[in-house]
Design a protein around this nucleic acid. Sequence first.
DNA 1: GAGTTTGTTGCATACGTATGCAAATGAAAG
DNA 2: CTTTCATTTGCATACGTATGCAACAAACTC
Lengths: 328, 328
Amino acid sequence: MRETVTAKDVAKLAGVSQSSVSRVYFEGASVSEKTKKRVLEAAEELGYRPNVYARSLITNQSNIIGLVMKGVQNPFYAQVLKRFSSIFKQHGYSILFVYTNNDEIQKEDVETLLNYNVAGVVVTDATMSFSVGEEFKKNHIPLVFFNRKLGTGEFHSVCCNNLSASRWIAQYLLSKGASELVLITGDEHTSTSIEREKGFCEVLDQQRIAYRKYNSDYTYEGGYQTAMTVLEEKQLPAAFFVANDIMALGVIDALRKNDIRIPQDTKVVGFDNIEMASWPAYELTTWEQPIEEMIEETVNYLLAEIMSYTGLAQIIEVDGKFVERKTT
Amino acid sequence: MRETVTAKDVAKLAGVSQSSVSRVYFEGASVSEKTKKRVLEAAEELGYRPNVYARSLITNQSNIIGLVMKGVQNPFYAQVLKRFSSIFKQHGYSILFVYTNNDEIQKEDVETLLNYNVAGVVVTDATMSFSVGEEFKKNHIPLVFFNRKLGTGEFHSVCCNNLSASRWIAQYLLSKGASELVLITGDEHTSTSIEREKGFCEVLDQQRIAYRKYNSDYTYEGGYQTAMTVLEEKQLPAAFFVANDIMALGVIDALRKNDIRIPQDTKVVGFDNIEMASWPAYELTTWEQPIEEMIEETVNYLLAEIMSYTGLAQIIEVDGKFVERKTT
DNA sequence: GAGTTTGTTGCATACGTATGCAAATGAAAG
DNA sequence: CTTTCATTTGCATACGTATGCAACAAACTC
């Protein structure tokens, strides 16, 4: 029942060889305009579509980009997913979506990516063991860590400049006269959380300013609970620096629950500038990650590496900018 | 450089034929325990992985599920994406993520799905022309419209029972003494919006209760703007029924911006019960879509159809339940 | 017009796996 | 030990495409 039209069928109808049909659909092959036209007409008539599997089998390539993601729930990554899908589609690539519920990408998921011989991989919001990264290198599959880092420069990475951003935020809060500060970090294994903490603390330590640090998990609930814990202890800090926006929203809600006024009684700064940060209910001051720019960098690198693999890795850091709203 | 270990290599090392190797990896083929063990050992040693493309070429099947989605930004669909990915992975399927920015799934996207000969398709948050649906039928590819309907029963569909839910909500608001009502709908072409409107209006018409209807677009900004428009007109309604939660949050923020107290001055009811509906900042009364149940239904149907195709379509409606919070 | 170059075409083969068929093996029965 | 039957194995081929090679045609060059 499943009618399957092959290049041979098209060839017969067009009165050419199967090779010629193949060449019509193969970028850069040499075919005359005349046969090309005849082939396309015949193909149209029969409803021919080249078989992806036969093609990939012989070329040992695919038009699939693997996208590894954990926190789809975080609006930041939802937007990332949307943009990547959109752009890669424009370039003729399809998206193999790999959801990983562990921080570290699992063997099973890696196998999937290798099985489909993906043209490239974007890992956002997850990490992987060093050896797994090497596996991709061995197979000449370009890989980008988006908004994450792994190791120290062995793998390509596109990030916001978390260090300078968090330093800036520290300075900003100090300039606002905030003396006692609270820092709420995200998943402690992620490079983003580590760096945002580092930059922030560096400045405070240098100026001998007191601060308390609480470890959370980059989720709304985490932010909410952590803020509650903070409030259970004696004194209300002058300001909170929260390692991402979604947690910051949780923090705000927890503070409000306790009738603490923002920004009068305390201040809150987030990180990411997700859409919700600008909602009237929150009006969160935050650091904007330049998503478009980061995605463009990522796509350009991948496409170049797919064209001709070098394996050269680089850590690219894009600045982003501070967005002041009503929580400070 | 790209070392490619084939079944032949494994066969040689294990001292068996390539066929035997193939049979070890093929579900339900007959191999003795002895050779199976030897093959697996050899495979392990060489790092063998069956070639997906060769396999699909010959079997004319794939282990890919196409997931078509538009509104990734809506937390409801983010959760749907996460759950589907997770469950299908458990069943050995990978996800081809197809993002469509048009309401109607484009030809290009359909081609992608057909090219990869997906085992099944889930369409959420998008619609497709009738003829495209037929195309999938022709190719015996099972298809489910998730939270959407197309036509009148020609295609399988898993939804919340929008009609009875919105009727229930209308009754509820009336019982709360709300006399003048406002209905804010979503994308007017979507079955969900149409049905939620229908059920709601039916009840009101029957009881000759006045209401105004505003058309919006299922986004936060849409809800916000629409509410602003409503407020520009003379009188504040006693309650809003908003066709989904994310819009309802926009409505709430717009009302608050105008210093309107909820639920004292007016009430708001949403639909979906996304996580944010329970956030302290909103505490939105809403109708809970039984996501888990809907997903389970969808997956079961697809797996069954993949096993043995019948093409039988059914419209499955799951009830869900009312969740009363503080906006009513 | 013979020779040279450029561009196009078909033939034949290869990619790595699944599978029908026949051969071979092993177990069970007599 | 022979016969029967069930199970396992290898051989050979097919899936639909890309591509090296040789053949061919056309267009120039001298």
